[in-house]
Amino acid sequence: MGPLIPNGILTNEWNIIIAVLIGLAFGFILEASGFSSSRKLAGVFYGYDFAVLKVFFTAAVVSVIGLYYMDYLGWIDMGMLYVHPTYLWAAIIGGAIMGVGFVAGGFCPGTSLCAVAIGKLDAWVYVFGIMLGVFIFSEAYSVLEGLYNGSFLGNITLVDSFDIPANYIIFGVTIIALVAFFVSDIVRKRIKKVFY
């Protein structure tokens, strides 16, 4: 069974069609959830709008629970899925740089594409900035290569890192997410409303 394309159940030509369809749905969901608005996105850092946290955590929890149920039922082979590789320091430093970029620019790449589609000029500039950033990285690759390729831990999951069964980790993540939702609602009630 799944994943269908790597297992050769669907031919490779479908890959492109599915890519466009998935992108279509992805863009629609992001835009309809309000992710094309940088002020709504930035709200999560100032406590006036927690849409990012809610959408992000709900999506993560739903997908991880769903995938593991499908794995249990034998519909999908978890071993075949692409696991984002862990380069410890690259992830931390790259993430930190992205964090500053996020709060300064108010977008992340996916949401900026949505905002580009509906004509936000700040998003056009932002996307141009991302491309400039990629360009700078590529030109400085010889300097950054050590960081980029260093501290490689493999395509590991939390199951390997903590040596706890996946089910317990998922349960823990779910509880963390629910607590975060609850706390975010309390915080939002206390913070002055910002209209945007």
Binding site: V61, V62, I65, Y68, Y69, Y72, N167, Y168, I170, F171, T174, I175, A177, L178
Partner: peptide
Amino acid sequence: LLLIAALGLV
């Protein structure tokens, strides 16, 4: 519901 689903996996 979400909690039950996660608990179900456990």
